[in-house]
Design a protein around this nucleic acid. Structure first.
Lengths: 259, 259
DNA sequence: CGAACATTTGAAGCGCGTCAAAGCCGGTGG
DNA sequence: CCACCGGCTTTGACGCGCTTCAAATGTTCG
Protein backbone atom coordinates (compact mmCIF):
# COMPACT_ATOMS: atom_id res chain seq x y z
CA UNK A 1 0.00 0.00 0.00
CA UNK A 2 0.93 3.60 -0.42
CA UNK A 3 4.08 5.06 -1.81
CA UNK A 4 7.41 3.53 -0.91
CA UNK A 5 10.43 5.74 -0.86
CA UNK A 6 13.33 3.72 -2.26
CA UNK A 7 12.98 3.76 -6.01
CA UNK A 8 16.40 2.47 -7.09
CA UNK A 9 16.75 -0.13 -9.81
CA UNK A 10 17.39 -3.08 -7.55
CA UNK A 11 14.70 -2.17 -5.07
CA UNK A 12 12.16 -1.76 -7.87
CA UNK A 13 12.85 -5.24 -9.19
CA UNK A 14 12.79 -6.74 -5.71
CA UNK A 15 9.52 -5.05 -4.92
CA UNK A 16 8.05 -6.64 -8.00
CA UNK A 17 9.49 -10.09 -7.33
CA UNK A 18 8.31 -9.73 -3.75
CA UNK A 19 4.82 -10.52 -5.01
CA UNK A 20 6.05 -13.94 -5.98
CA UNK A 21 8.62 -14.85 -3.34
CA UNK A 22 10.27 -13.75 -0.15
CA UNK A 23 13.61 -12.22 -1.03
CA UNK A 24 16.42 -13.13 1.37
CA UNK A 25 19.32 -10.90 2.28
CA UNK A 26 21.66 -12.92 0.09
CA UNK A 27 19.34 -12.73 -2.89
CA UNK A 28 18.79 -9.03 -2.55
CA UNK A 29 22.54 -8.47 -2.52
CA UNK A 30 22.91 -10.55 -5.66
CA UNK A 31 20.19 -8.55 -7.38
CA UNK A 32 21.81 -5.31 -6.36
CA UNK A 33 25.12 -6.50 -7.74
CA UNK A 34 23.56 -7.53 -11.03
CA UNK A 35 21.89 -4.15 -11.42
CA UNK A 36 24.99 -2.16 -10.57
CA UNK A 37 25.09 -0.51 -14.02
CA UNK A 38 24.21 3.13 -14.59
CA UNK A 39 20.61 4.30 -14.52
CA UNK A 40 19.79 5.71 -17.92
CA UNK A 41 17.16 8.31 -18.71
CA UNK A 42 14.89 8.88 -21.68
CA UNK A 43 12.39 11.64 -22.35
CA UNK A 44 8.71 11.09 -23.00
CA UNK A 45 7.75 9.62 -26.37
CA UNK A 46 11.09 8.25 -27.41
CA UNK A 47 11.98 4.77 -28.54
CA UNK A 48 14.07 2.58 -26.28
CA UNK A 49 14.15 -0.11 -28.92
CA UNK A 50 12.87 -0.07 -32.46
CA UNK A 51 11.25 -2.76 -34.56
CA UNK A 52 13.77 -4.41 -36.86
CA UNK A 53 16.78 -3.74 -34.64
CA UNK A 54 18.67 -6.43 -32.80
CA UNK A 55 17.74 -6.39 -29.12
CA UNK A 56 20.64 -4.83 -27.21
CA UNK A 57 19.97 -6.01 -23.69
CA UNK A 58 17.26 -6.57 -21.15
CA UNK A 59 15.64 -3.37 -19.93
CA UNK A 60 14.43 -2.85 -16.40
CA UNK A 61 12.06 0.09 -16.02
CA UNK A 62 12.98 1.97 -12.85
CA UNK A 63 10.54 4.86 -13.05
CA UNK A 64 8.01 6.16 -15.55
CA UNK A 65 5.75 4.37 -18.01
CA UNK A 66 6.70 2.80 -21.33
CA UNK A 67 4.93 0.58 -23.83
CA UNK A 68 5.37 -2.01 -26.50
CA UNK A 69 3.75 -1.02 -29.77
CA UNK A 70 3.46 -2.10 -33.35
CA UNK A 71 2.66 0.02 -36.37
CA UNK A 72 0.92 -1.04 -39.56
CA UNK A 73 2.29 0.20 -42.85
CA UNK A 74 -0.51 2.71 -43.20
CA UNK A 75 0.23 4.36 -39.88
CA UNK A 76 -2.30 2.68 -37.59
CA UNK A 77 -0.64 2.10 -34.24
CA UNK A 78 -1.47 -0.43 -31.56
CA UNK A 79 0.01 -0.36 -28.08
CA UNK A 80 0.19 -4.02 -27.12
CA UNK A 81 1.58 -3.71 -23.59
CA UNK A 82 2.20 -1.12 -20.93
CA UNK A 83 5.47 -1.36 -19.05
CA UNK A 84 5.61 -0.13 -15.47
CA UNK A 85 8.44 0.27 -12.98
CA UNK A 86 9.78 -3.13 -11.97
CA UNK A 87 8.98 -4.65 -15.38
CA UNK A 88 11.72 -6.42 -17.26
CA UNK A 89 11.53 -6.22 -21.04
CA UNK A 90 12.82 -8.78 -23.45
CA UNK A 91 14.10 -11.58 -21.37
CA UNK A 92 15.45 -12.67 -24.66
CA UNK A 93 18.32 -14.91 -23.81
CA UNK A 94 19.96 -13.77 -27.01
CA UNK A 95 17.69 -16.05 -29.01
CA UNK A 96 15.80 -13.73 -31.36
CA UNK A 97 17.81 -11.79 -33.88
CA UNK A 98 15.51 -8.82 -34.29
CA UNK A 99 12.74 -6.97 -32.53
CA UNK A 100 9.29 -7.60 -33.97
CA UNK A 101 7.91 -4.52 -32.21
CA UNK A 102 9.13 -1.29 -30.70
CA UNK A 103 9.46 -0.20 -27.12
CA UNK A 104 8.74 3.45 -26.52
CA UNK A 105 8.35 5.67 -23.51
CA UNK A 106 5.06 7.27 -22.59
CA UNK A 107 6.50 9.49 -19.86
CA UNK A 108 10.11 10.31 -19.05
CA UNK A 109 11.63 6.99 -18.02
CA UNK A 110 14.61 5.92 -15.95
CA UNK A 111 15.85 2.45 -16.77
CA UNK A 112 18.85 0.16 -16.63
CA UNK A 113 20.18 -2.17 -19.29
CA UNK A 114 21.23 -5.63 -18.19
CA UNK A 115 23.06 -8.09 -20.38
CA UNK A 116 21.31 -11.42 -20.68
CA UNK A 117 24.51 -13.14 -19.53
CA UNK A 118 24.35 -11.35 -16.19
CA UNK A 119 20.71 -12.25 -15.80
CA UNK A 120 21.34 -15.86 -16.72
CA UNK A 121 24.11 -16.09 -14.15
CA UNK A 122 21.88 -14.47 -11.55
CA UNK A 123 19.17 -17.03 -12.26
CA UNK A 124 21.63 -19.90 -12.24
CA UNK A 125 23.24 -18.90 -8.95
CA UNK A 126 19.91 -18.16 -7.26
CA UNK A 127 17.25 -20.59 -8.43
CA UNK A 128 14.48 -18.79 -6.57
CA UNK A 129 15.30 -15.58 -8.41
CA UNK A 130 15.33 -17.57 -11.62
CA UNK A 131 11.84 -18.74 -10.81
CA UNK A 132 10.85 -15.17 -10.08
CA UNK A 133 12.05 -13.99 -13.47
CA UNK A 134 10.22 -16.88 -15.05
CA UNK A 135 7.10 -15.81 -13.15
CA UNK A 136 7.40 -12.28 -14.52
CA UNK A 137 7.68 -13.60 -18.05
CA UNK A 138 4.68 -15.89 -17.69
CA UNK A 139 2.57 -13.13 -16.18
CA UNK A 140 3.46 -10.87 -19.08
CA UNK A 141 2.27 -13.51 -21.50
CA UNK A 142 -0.94 -13.89 -19.51
CA UNK A 143 -1.48 -10.13 -19.67
CA UNK A 144 -0.94 -10.23 -23.40
CA UNK A 145 -3.63 -12.89 -23.72
CA UNK A 146 -6.01 -10.81 -21.64
CA UNK A 147 -5.40 -7.81 -23.87
CA UNK A 148 -6.33 -9.94 -26.85
CA UNK A 149 -9.62 -10.75 -25.14
CA UNK A 150 -10.02 -7.11 -24.25
CA UNK A 151 -9.86 -5.72 -27.75
CA UNK A 152 -11.50 -8.79 -29.26
CA UNK A 153 -14.63 -9.13 -27.18
CA UNK A 154 -15.21 -6.16 -24.93
CA UNK A 155 -17.11 -2.90 -25.41
CA UNK A 156 -15.41 0.46 -25.10
CA UNK A 157 -16.42 0.95 -21.45
CA UNK A 158 -15.28 -2.55 -20.59
CA UNK A 159 -11.94 -2.17 -22.35
CA UNK A 160 -11.10 1.05 -20.61
CA UNK A 161 -12.44 -0.21 -17.29
CA UNK A 162 -10.39 -3.38 -17.45
CA UNK A 163 -7.26 -1.46 -18.31
CA UNK A 164 -7.80 0.87 -15.36
CA UNK A 165 -8.27 -2.08 -13.01
CA UNK A 166 -5.22 -3.90 -14.31
CA UNK A 167 -3.01 -0.87 -13.93
CA UNK A 168 -4.28 -0.26 -10.41
CA UNK A 169 -3.33 -3.76 -9.30
CA UNK A 170 -0.02 -3.75 -11.11
CA UNK A 171 0.96 -0.37 -9.67
CA UNK A 172 -0.12 -1.40 -6.19
CA UNK A 173 2.07 -4.47 -6.55
CA UNK A 174 5.12 -2.23 -6.78
CA UNK A 175 3.88 0.33 -4.26
CA UNK A 176 3.09 3.04 -6.79
CA UNK A 177 -0.67 3.30 -6.40
CA UNK A 178 -2.84 4.29 -3.48
CA UNK A 179 -5.82 2.34 -2.28
CA UNK A 180 -8.13 3.61 -5.01
CA UNK A 181 -6.17 5.57 -7.55
CA UNK A 182 -2.92 6.49 -9.19
CA UNK A 183 -1.25 9.06 -11.42
CA UNK A 184 -2.40 8.41 -14.97
CA UNK A 185 -0.08 9.97 -17.54
CA UNK A 186 -1.57 8.65 -20.79
CA UNK A 187 -3.27 10.97 -23.24
CA UNK A 188 -6.63 9.96 -24.60
CA UNK A 189 -4.97 9.22 -27.92
CA UNK A 190 -2.60 6.77 -26.24
CA UNK A 191 -5.45 5.24 -24.30
CA UNK A 192 -7.17 4.75 -27.64
CA UNK A 193 -4.08 3.11 -29.12
CA UNK A 194 -3.96 0.68 -26.21
CA UNK A 195 -7.63 -0.25 -26.35
CA UNK A 196 -8.13 -0.48 -30.10
CA UNK A 197 -10.46 2.52 -30.22
CA UNK A 198 -10.25 6.04 -31.61
CA UNK A 199 -9.39 8.99 -29.43
CA UNK A 200 -12.77 10.58 -30.14
CA UNK A 201 -14.60 7.57 -28.88
CA UNK A 202 -12.33 7.24 -25.86
CA UNK A 203 -13.21 10.81 -25.01
CA UNK A 204 -16.93 10.18 -25.14
CA UNK A 205 -16.59 6.89 -23.26
CA UNK A 206 -14.61 8.54 -20.48
CA UNK A 207 -17.34 11.12 -20.15
CA UNK A 208 -20.03 8.53 -19.64
CA UNK A 209 -17.80 6.74 -17.12
CA UNK A 210 -17.23 9.98 -15.27
CA UNK A 211 -20.90 10.90 -15.35
CA UNK A 212 -21.94 7.54 -13.96
CA UNK A 213 -19.45 8.01 -11.13
CA UNK A 214 -17.35 5.00 -12.08
CA UNK A 215 -14.12 6.95 -12.27
CA UNK A 216 -12.66 10.32 -11.64
CA UNK A 217 -9.98 11.34 -14.11
CA UNK A 218 -8.58 14.83 -14.18
CA UNK A 219 -5.17 16.46 -14.01
CA UNK A 220 -3.47 13.21 -15.01
CA UNK A 221 -4.82 11.52 -11.92
CA UNK A 222 -7.22 8.61 -11.91
CA UNK A 223 -9.27 7.56 -8.96
CA UNK A 224 -11.72 4.71 -8.72
CA UNK A 225 -14.28 5.42 -6.00
CA UNK A 226 -15.82 1.94 -6.10
CA UNK A 227 -13.45 -0.67 -7.45
CA UNK A 228 -15.98 -3.48 -7.16
CA UNK A 229 -18.48 -1.53 -9.24
CA UNK A 230 -15.91 -0.90 -11.96
CA UNK A 231 -14.80 -4.53 -11.95
CA UNK A 232 -18.40 -5.67 -12.32
CA UNK A 233 -19.18 -3.27 -15.15
CA UNK A 234 -15.99 -4.16 -17.00
CA UNK A 235 -16.16 -7.91 -16.32
CA UNK A 236 -12.66 -7.65 -14.89
CA UNK A 237 -11.19 -10.65 -13.15
CA UNK A 238 -7.68 -10.29 -11.69
CA UNK A 239 -6.72 -13.97 -11.85
CA UNK A 240 -4.51 -13.55 -14.89
CA UNK A 241 -2.16 -11.25 -13.00
CA UNK A 242 -1.16 -14.10 -10.69
CA UNK A 243 -0.44 -11.67 -7.89
CA UNK A 244 -1.18 -14.12 -5.10
CA UNK A 245 1.06 -17.00 -6.09
CA UNK A 246 3.09 -16.61 -2.91
CA UNK A 247 0.09 -16.94 -0.60
CA UNK A 248 -1.38 -19.64 -2.75
CA UNK A 249 1.78 -21.72 -2.59
CA UNK A 250 2.21 -21.37 1.15
CA UNK A 251 -1.51 -21.81 1.72
CA UNK A 252 -1.38 -24.98 -0.31
CA UNK A 253 1.50 -26.24 1.78
CA UNK A 254 -0.52 -25.70 4.94
CA UNK A 255 -3.60 -27.50 3.73
CA UNK A 256 -1.42 -30.30 2.46
CA UNK A 257 0.03 -30.69 5.94
CA UNK A 258 -3.50 -30.70 7.29
CA UNK A 259 -4.70 -33.59 5.18
CA UNK B 1 7.98 -28.66 -48.49
CA UNK B 2 4.89 -30.75 -48.67
CA UNK B 3 3.75 -33.47 -46.40
CA UNK B 4 6.24 -35.47 -44.35
CA UNK B 5 5.37 -38.95 -43.30
CA UNK B 6 6.71 -39.42 -39.76
CA UNK B 7 4.24 -37.81 -37.42
CA UNK B 8 5.39 -39.19 -34.05
CA UNK B 9 5.68 -36.96 -31.02
CA UNK B 10 9.45 -36.59 -31.09
CA UNK B 11 9.63 -36.07 -34.81
CA UNK B 12 6.93 -33.38 -34.62
CA UNK B 13 8.86 -31.41 -32.02
CA UNK B 14 12.11 -31.81 -33.89
CA UNK B 15 10.52 -30.66 -37.10
CA UNK B 16 9.40 -27.53 -35.32
CA UNK B 17 12.73 -26.88 -33.62
CA UNK B 18 14.40 -27.54 -36.95
CA UNK B 19 13.31 -24.05 -37.98
CA UNK B 20 15.54 -22.65 -35.28
CA UNK B 21 18.52 -24.99 -35.15
CA UNK B 22 20.14 -28.01 -36.72
CA UNK B 23 19.32 -31.02 -34.58
CA UNK B 24 22.19 -33.45 -34.14
CA UNK B 25 21.86 -37.19 -33.79
CA UNK B 26 22.57 -36.95 -30.06
CA UNK B 27 19.97 -34.26 -29.54
CA UNK B 28 17.32 -36.08 -31.49
CA UNK B 29 17.90 -39.18 -29.35
CA UNK B 30 17.55 -37.12 -26.19
CA UNK B 31 14.31 -35.61 -27.45
CA UNK B 32 12.96 -39.03 -28.35
CA UNK B 33 13.84 -40.27 -24.87
CA UNK B 34 12.12 -37.34 -23.20
CA UNK B 35 8.96 -37.88 -25.24
CA UNK B 36 8.81 -41.60 -24.60
CA UNK B 37 5.47 -41.35 -22.79
CA UNK B 38 2.21 -42.58 -24.29
CA UNK B 39 0.45 -40.60 -27.01
CA UNK B 40 -2.93 -39.55 -25.67
CA UNK B 41 -6.01 -38.81 -27.73
CA UNK B 42 -8.88 -36.37 -27.32
CA UNK B 43 -11.98 -35.83 -29.43
CA UNK B 44 -12.91 -32.57 -31.09
CA UNK B 45 -14.19 -29.79 -28.86
CA UNK B 46 -12.96 -31.11 -25.53
CA UNK B 47 -10.87 -29.34 -22.93
CA UNK B 48 -7.31 -30.49 -22.38
CA UNK B 49 -6.95 -28.04 -19.52
CA UNK B 50 -9.52 -25.82 -17.90
CA UNK B 51 -9.25 -22.32 -16.49
CA UNK B 52 -8.82 -22.42 -12.72
CA UNK B 53 -7.17 -25.83 -12.61
CA UNK B 54 -3.56 -26.38 -11.70
CA UNK B 55 -1.52 -27.05 -14.83
CA UNK B 56 -0.74 -30.78 -14.92
CA UNK B 57 2.14 -30.90 -17.32
CA UNK B 58 3.46 -29.52 -20.55
CA UNK B 59 1.46 -30.61 -23.58
CA UNK B 60 2.97 -31.30 -26.96
CA UNK B 61 0.45 -31.37 -29.78
CA UNK B 62 1.26 -34.29 -32.06
CA UNK B 63 -1.62 -34.05 -34.51
CA UNK B 64 -4.78 -32.01 -34.87
CA UNK B 65 -5.59 -28.41 -33.93
CA UNK B 66 -6.25 -27.00 -30.47
CA UNK B 67 -6.63 -23.52 -29.05
CA UNK B 68 -6.27 -21.39 -25.98
CA UNK B 69 -9.46 -19.55 -25.11
CA UNK B 70 -10.99 -17.42 -22.43
CA UNK B 71 -14.65 -16.92 -21.64
CA UNK B 72 -16.30 -13.86 -20.15
CA UNK B 73 -18.94 -14.36 -17.50
CA UNK B 74 -21.72 -13.58 -19.94
CA UNK B 75 -20.64 -16.28 -22.37
CA UNK B 76 -18.62 -14.31 -24.87
CA UNK B 77 -15.67 -16.45 -25.94
CA UNK B 78 -12.34 -15.39 -27.38
CA UNK B 79 -9.85 -17.79 -28.86
CA UNK B 80 -6.49 -16.22 -28.06
CA UNK B 81 -4.17 -18.70 -29.74
CA UNK B 82 -4.26 -21.61 -32.12
CA UNK B 83 -2.06 -24.57 -31.28
CA UNK B 84 -0.71 -26.68 -34.11
CA UNK B 85 1.28 -29.93 -34.20
CA UNK B 86 4.76 -29.34 -32.79
CA UNK B 87 3.55 -26.64 -30.41
CA UNK B 88 4.39 -26.96 -26.73
CA UNK B 89 1.80 -25.54 -24.33
CA UNK B 90 2.52 -24.16 -20.92
CA UNK B 91 6.20 -24.26 -20.55
CA UNK B 92 5.31 -23.45 -17.01
CA UNK B 93 8.23 -24.60 -15.00
CA UNK B 94 5.82 -25.29 -12.18
CA UNK B 95 5.65 -21.58 -11.37
CA UNK B 96 2.00 -20.64 -11.82
CA UNK B 97 -0.51 -22.30 -9.53
CA UNK B 98 -3.53 -22.14 -11.78
CA UNK B 99 -4.50 -21.79 -15.40
CA UNK B 100 -5.81 -18.36 -16.34
CA UNK B 101 -7.35 -19.74 -19.54
CA UNK B 102 -8.49 -23.02 -21.01
CA UNK B 103 -6.95 -25.20 -23.67
CA UNK B 104 -9.46 -26.96 -25.86
CA UNK B 105 -9.30 -29.04 -28.99
CA UNK B 106 -10.76 -27.87 -32.27
CA UNK B 107 -10.34 -31.19 -34.06
CA UNK B 108 -9.51 -34.61 -32.67
CA UNK B 109 -6.03 -34.24 -31.21
CA UNK B 110 -3.19 -36.59 -30.37
CA UNK B 111 -0.82 -35.21 -27.76
CA UNK B 112 1.74 -36.18 -25.13
CA UNK B 113 2.14 -34.86 -21.62
CA UNK B 114 5.66 -34.07 -20.47
CA UNK B 115 6.57 -33.21 -16.90
CA UNK B 116 8.38 -29.93 -16.56
CA UNK B 117 11.19 -31.73 -14.72
CA UNK B 118 11.91 -33.86 -17.78
CA UNK B 119 11.91 -30.80 -19.99
CA UNK B 120 14.15 -28.89 -17.62
CA UNK B 121 16.63 -31.72 -17.59
CA UNK B 122 16.50 -31.96 -21.37
CA UNK B 123 17.23 -28.25 -21.63
CA UNK B 124 20.00 -28.45 -19.05
CA UNK B 125 21.73 -31.42 -20.66
CA UNK B 126 21.39 -30.01 -24.17
CA UNK B 127 21.77 -26.24 -24.16
CA UNK B 128 20.91 -25.89 -27.81
CA UNK B 129 17.59 -27.64 -27.22
CA UNK B 130 17.05 -25.35 -24.27
CA UNK B 131 17.53 -22.40 -26.58
CA UNK B 132 15.11 -23.98 -29.01
CA UNK B 133 12.42 -24.28 -26.36
CA UNK B 134 13.10 -20.70 -25.37
CA UNK B 135 12.72 -19.72 -29.01
CA UNK B 136 9.31 -21.45 -29.17
CA UNK B 137 8.16 -19.60 -26.10
CA UNK B 138 9.29 -16.22 -27.38
CA UNK B 139 7.68 -16.79 -30.76
CA UNK B 140 4.43 -17.67 -29.03
CA UNK B 141 4.54 -14.40 -27.14
CA UNK B 142 5.25 -12.56 -30.38
CA UNK B 143 2.25 -14.24 -31.99
CA UNK B 144 0.12 -13.19 -29.05
CA UNK B 145 1.19 -9.59 -29.54
CA UNK B 146 0.37 -9.78 -33.22
CA UNK B 147 -3.09 -11.11 -32.40
CA UNK B 148 -3.62 -8.12 -30.16
CA UNK B 149 -2.79 -5.87 -33.10
CA UNK B 150 -5.02 -7.96 -35.29
CA UNK B 151 -8.20 -7.57 -33.29
CA UNK B 152 -7.29 -4.06 -32.17
CA UNK B 153 -6.54 -2.34 -35.44
CA UNK B 154 -7.46 -4.44 -38.42
CA UNK B 155 -10.65 -4.70 -40.47
CA UNK B 156 -12.51 -7.97 -40.88
CA UNK B 157 -10.84 -8.86 -44.18
CA UNK B 158 -7.44 -8.03 -42.79
CA UNK B 159 -7.96 -10.06 -39.61
CA UNK B 160 -9.03 -13.16 -41.47
CA UNK B 161 -6.38 -12.67 -44.13
CA UNK B 162 -3.61 -12.32 -41.56
CA UNK B 163 -4.77 -15.41 -39.72
CA UNK B 164 -4.79 -17.42 -42.94
CA UNK B 165 -1.27 -16.27 -43.76
CA UNK B 166 0.04 -16.99 -40.29
CA UNK B 167 -1.39 -20.48 -40.29
CA UNK B 168 0.03 -21.19 -43.73
CA UNK B 169 3.56 -20.31 -42.61
CA UNK B 170 3.26 -22.10 -39.30
CA UNK B 171 1.92 -25.25 -40.91
CA UNK B 172 4.57 -25.15 -43.62
CA UNK B 173 7.17 -24.89 -40.86
CA UNK B 174 6.15 -28.33 -39.63
CA UNK B 175 5.53 -29.79 -43.06
CA UNK B 176 1.74 -29.84 -42.82
CA UNK B 177 0.84 -27.35 -45.52
CA UNK B 178 1.37 -27.41 -49.24
CA UNK B 179 2.78 -24.53 -51.24
CA UNK B 180 -0.43 -22.55 -51.25
CA UNK B 181 -2.97 -24.16 -49.00
CA UNK B 182 -3.86 -26.47 -46.18
CA UNK B 183 -6.73 -28.34 -44.56
CA UNK B 184 -8.76 -25.82 -42.59
CA UNK B 185 -10.92 -27.46 -39.93
CA UNK B 186 -12.37 -24.42 -38.16
CA UNK B 187 -16.04 -23.58 -38.40
CA UNK B 188 -16.98 -20.02 -39.19
CA UNK B 189 -18.08 -19.60 -35.60
CA UNK B 190 -14.62 -20.59 -34.36
CA UNK B 191 -13.00 -18.34 -36.94
CA UNK B 192 -15.16 -15.55 -35.53
CA UNK B 193 -14.10 -16.34 -31.99
CA UNK B 194 -10.46 -16.15 -33.02
CA UNK B 195 -10.79 -12.86 -34.88
CA UNK B 196 -13.08 -10.97 -32.53
CA UNK B 197 -15.96 -10.92 -35.01
CA UNK B 198 -19.37 -12.57 -35.21
CA UNK B 199 -19.98 -15.67 -37.26
CA UNK B 200 -22.45 -13.81 -39.45
CA UNK B 201 -19.90 -11.21 -40.35
CA UNK B 202 -17.21 -13.81 -40.91
CA UNK B 203 -19.54 -15.50 -43.35
CA UNK B 204 -20.08 -12.34 -45.35
CA UNK B 205 -16.41 -11.44 -45.25
CA UNK B 206 -15.39 -14.87 -46.50
CA UNK B 207 -17.78 -14.43 -49.39
CA UNK B 208 -16.23 -11.18 -50.47
CA UNK B 209 -12.77 -12.72 -50.16
CA UNK B 210 -13.87 -15.67 -52.26
CA UNK B 211 -15.52 -13.46 -54.84
CA UNK B 212 -12.43 -11.30 -55.23
CA UNK B 213 -10.38 -14.46 -55.77
CA UNK B 214 -8.20 -13.94 -52.69
CA UNK B 215 -8.94 -17.35 -51.26
CA UNK B 216 -10.69 -20.57 -52.00
CA UNK B 217 -12.29 -22.21 -49.00
CA UNK B 218 -14.56 -25.19 -49.38
CA UNK B 219 -14.79 -28.69 -47.98
CA UNK B 220 -12.60 -27.74 -45.02
CA UNK B 221 -9.76 -26.91 -47.36
CA UNK B 222 -8.21 -23.50 -47.78
CA UNK B 223 -6.11 -22.48 -50.71
CA UNK B 224 -4.47 -19.16 -51.38
CA UNK B 225 -3.96 -18.67 -55.10
CA UNK B 226 -1.84 -15.54 -54.72
CA UNK B 227 -0.15 -15.30 -51.36
CA UNK B 228 1.46 -11.96 -52.11
CA UNK B 229 -1.90 -10.45 -52.94
CA UNK B 230 -3.42 -11.69 -49.71
CA UNK B 231 -0.45 -10.45 -47.69
CA UNK B 232 -0.76 -7.03 -49.27
CA UNK B 233 -4.49 -6.77 -48.70
CA UNK B 234 -4.18 -7.92 -45.09
CA UNK B 235 -1.03 -5.92 -44.29
CA UNK B 236 0.55 -9.17 -43.18
CA UNK B 237 4.24 -9.20 -42.36
CA UNK B 238 5.76 -12.52 -41.28
CA UNK B 239 8.61 -11.08 -39.23
CA UNK B 240 6.98 -11.84 -35.91
CA UNK B 241 7.06 -15.57 -36.59
CA UNK B 242 10.89 -15.54 -36.51
CA UNK B 243 11.03 -18.47 -38.89
CA UNK B 244 14.38 -17.55 -40.36
CA UNK B 245 16.44 -17.21 -37.22
CA UNK B 246 18.70 -20.08 -38.26
CA UNK B 247 19.61 -18.51 -41.61
CA UNK B 248 19.85 -15.08 -40.06
CA UNK B 249 22.30 -16.26 -37.43
CA UNK B 250 24.53 -18.10 -39.88
CA UNK B 251 24.21 -15.26 -42.38
CA UNK B 252 25.24 -12.80 -39.70
CA UNK B 253 28.29 -14.91 -38.90
CA UNK B 254 29.36 -14.73 -42.51
CA UNK B 255 28.95 -10.98 -42.82
CA UNK B 256 30.78 -10.53 -39.55
CA UNK B 257 33.72 -12.49 -40.90
CA UNK B 258 33.60 -10.26 -43.96
CA UNK B 259 33.92 -6.97 -42.09
C1' DC C 1 1.60 35.97 -26.61
C1' DG C 2 1.54 32.44 -29.77
C1' DA C 3 2.55 27.59 -31.24
C1' DA C 4 1.76 22.96 -30.37
C1' DC C 5 -0.77 19.75 -28.43
C1' DA C 6 -4.79 17.64 -25.71
C1' DT C 7 -9.61 17.65 -24.98
C1' DT C 8 -14.17 18.32 -26.39
C1' DT C 9 -18.15 18.76 -29.50
C1' DG C 10 -21.02 18.06 -33.67
C1' DA C 11 -22.77 15.75 -37.65
C1' DA C 12 -22.81 12.13 -40.74
C1' DG C 13 -21.99 7.45 -42.10
C1' DC C 14 -20.27 2.84 -42.28
C1' DG C 15 -18.81 -1.59 -40.48
C1' DC C 16 -20.16 -4.78 -37.87
C1' DG C 17 -23.57 -6.77 -34.52
C1' DT C 18 -28.19 -8.59 -33.64
C1' DC C 19 -32.15 -11.19 -34.44
C1' DA C 20 -34.48 -14.37 -37.06
C1' DA C 21 -35.34 -17.60 -40.45
C1' DA C 22 -34.21 -20.45 -44.21
C1' DG C 23 -31.25 -23.68 -46.67
C1' DC C 24 -27.89 -27.28 -46.49
C1' DC C 25 -25.47 -31.37 -45.25
C1' DG C 26 -24.21 -35.52 -42.86
C1' DG C 27 -25.61 -38.77 -39.63
C1' DT C 28 -28.88 -41.76 -37.29
C1' DG C 29 -32.77 -44.48 -36.63
C1' DG C 30 -36.93 -46.45 -38.06
C1' DC D 1 -34.31 -45.97 -48.25
C1' DC D 2 -36.41 -42.23 -46.41
C1' DA D 3 -37.59 -39.18 -42.49
C1' DC D 4 -35.80 -36.62 -39.25
C1' DC D 5 -32.49 -34.15 -36.43
C1' DG D 6 -28.63 -31.17 -35.14
C1' DG D 7 -25.02 -28.40 -36.54
C1' DC D 8 -23.07 -25.35 -39.98
C1' DT D 9 -23.73 -21.95 -43.52
C1' DT D 10 -26.20 -18.49 -45.75
C1' DT D 11 -29.46 -14.62 -46.28
C1' DG D 12 -32.28 -10.52 -45.01
C1' DA D 13 -33.61 -6.55 -42.41
C1' DC D 14 -32.49 -3.48 -39.08
C1' DG D 15 -29.95 -0.94 -35.64
C1' DC D 16 -26.20 0.60 -32.93
C1' DG D 17 -21.38 1.40 -31.61
C1' DC D 18 -17.83 3.17 -33.22
C1' DT D 19 -15.27 5.82 -36.85
C1' DT D 20 -14.47 9.77 -39.66
C1' DC D 21 -13.94 14.42 -40.62
C1' DA D 22 -13.86 18.92 -39.05
C1' DA D 23 -13.69 22.58 -36.08
C1' DA D 24 -13.85 24.77 -31.60
C1' DT D 25 -12.00 25.10 -27.04
C1' DG D 26 -8.87 24.49 -23.50
C1' DT D 27 -4.00 23.94 -21.80
C1' DT D 28 0.91 24.00 -21.48
C1' DC D 29 5.12 26.08 -22.17
C1' DG D 30 8.66 28.42 -24.54
Amino acid sequence: MGQASDTGAASMLMRHLGNFMDVTERESEAIAAALAGPVLAAGARTDLMTEGEAPRAVLLIVSGWACRYKMLEDGRRQIVAILLPGDLCDLNNGVLAQMDHSIGTLTPVRYVEISSEVLQRLAADHPKIGQGLWWQLLVNVAIQREWTVNVGRRSAVERIGCLFCELLLRLQAVGLAGEDGYPFPLTQTELAEATGLTSVHVNRTLQTMRNSGLIRLADRTLSIPDLTALQDIALFSPDYLHLNEKERRSGKGVTRLGT
